[in-house]
Amino acid sequence: MTDSKSNYDVVVIGAGISGIIGAYELAIDHDVLVIDQGRVANDATSRASGLISTPQVFPDMPAFGAYAIDFFEKFSGTGIFSYKPRRKIQPVLNGGEAAARQHAQEQSEQDNPVHYYDPHEFNERFPNVARLDALEGYDGVLEYERTGMIDPMDYAHSLKNQAKSRGAEFRTDTEVLDVLVDNDVVAGVETEYGRVHAPKVVCAAGWRTNELLADHAELPVRPFRWQAVEVKLSDGLPTAYPMGSETSMEVYWRPINGDNLLIGGRPITVGSPASEPSTITDSFQTMVREQLPELLPVLEDATIVREECCPTGDSATPDALPIYDTPADAPDGLVIATGFQKGGIMSSPCTGAAIRSLVADEPAPFSLEPFQLSRFDDRSSDFPLMNIYTAFRES
């Protein structure tokens, strides 16, 4: 390895969507190297749902949600990437009407139009989508306008190509063994093929971030698996059928492959994805076959044509929010971006902006305070996974 290839301004560990978009944001004025032990976008990114709904998943952070949607809309048409707007619904459980109405008003004031409908109003607007008026347990439904769908791999590789055109380099099939530190200041990384020197290191290695930084920062991050099925509908999918999610079942759905639906959710706690089986649970299958059709009539007589349980694992924190930080108790020059239970793909534009802000010491387009590591008093990795759809539930 020549000297010119072993010195960079920034090394990014991890070529998933977070590392890719971090490189994309930095490469415009930094010499960036992205290193991954496998291939680009080959792990959790390649298994992502492609459902984009930051205004719904981050209800208390309208600026965060709007920034992500703005990015997808503007980036659409770049390379092979296309953002497809599609409305999303979320049934509101009993006791959640007041909070849901307030949320709809606040989001709409932030240019993220959200509407609240009681069951009768909703069924008039969306006939035969959901049986809200025939089921107990629901006050109404929220409808989100600024949501949509993408192909995760088209997105990842379009971003990678743009990052490379800005000068970023990608080094795959290369394991990072450690972060190099000299007098409590980052000096680069040690890889299986030698050292790479850099004054800034961004660790965006998913749940492995916790293990990789064990000697440098204590992180409350643990692995988990998403599970999903693709179902073929007996009568096909109605035109413009909305995406959606349901709180109590911890489930989402989105159109896929023409007349099919992708149904996912109910994260599975795992200790080590490499050593534990990757199969969907019986309870998830039962929910898809028996419970969800009671709400969504299109699922009657549907057939499961594909099952998937993410074999590589994703990363979670105790509050399901990511960590974007340069922790005070970590070496200077170390940037952490991990913990994407709420959607690494959908929040990736914000991840890129946060990484840019932390590396270049520039203001971020939204507050980074909610994502600081210091919010956790307990940094243990032994915690239950949070239901990310808990907004608007009765407390």
Rank of each mutant, 00 (worst) to 15 (best):
S4W: 15
K5D: 15
S6E: 14
Y8I: 00
V11F: 07
V11W: 04
G14Q: 02
S18F: 02
S18R: 03
G19R: 03
I21W: 04
Y24K: 07
Y24F: 15
E25T: 12
V34A: 09
A44Y: 01
A44G: 03
T45Y: 02
S49E: 01
S53C: 14
T54Q: 08
Q56R: 12
Q56I: 10
V57N: 09
V57A: 12
F64C: 03
F64T: 01
G65Q: 10
Y67S: 01
D70K: 06
D70P: 01
F71N: 04
F71V: 05
P85T: 03
R86E: 10
P91T: 07
L93Y: 14
H103M: 07
Q107F: 06
S108R: 03
N112I: 15
P113T: 00
P119S: 05
E124R: 08
N128A: 11
A130F: 01
D133S: 09
D133N: 07
A134H: 11
Y138M: 05
D139T: 05
G140H: 05
E143V: 10
R146H: 12
D151F: 08
Y155Q: 08
A156R: 00
S165H: 12
E169Y: 14
D184K: 11
V185A: 15
E190I: 05
T191N: 06
T191R: 02
K200R: 14
W207H: 13
N210H: 13
L213F: 09
D215G: 06
D215R: 13
W226G: 10
V231R: 01
T239E: 15
A240E: 15
Y241R: 02
P242D: 09
M243H: 07
G244H: 04
T247R: 02
S248Y: 13
V251N: 09
R254M: 06
N257A: 13
R266F: 13
T269I: 11
G271M: 11
S275D: 15
I280F: 06
T281R: 10
D282A: 14
M287C: 04
M287K: 02
L292P: 00
P293K: 05
L296K: 00
P297E: 13
P297V: 10
P297T: 10
D301A: 07
P311W: 12
P311T: 11
G313N: 12
D325E: 03
T326A: 13
A328W: 07
A328R: 12
P331E: 11
I336E: 09
A337T: 09
A337S: 15
A337H: 07
T338Q: 07
T338V: 15
K342Y: 10
G344Y: 07
G352M: 04
V359Y: 01
P363V: 02
P365Q: 03
F366S: 00
E369F: 08
F371R: 02
Q372Y: 11
D377F: 08
R379H: 10
P384H: 13
M386V: 14
Y389A: 05
Y389E: 12
T390E: 12
R393P: 00
R393Y: 06
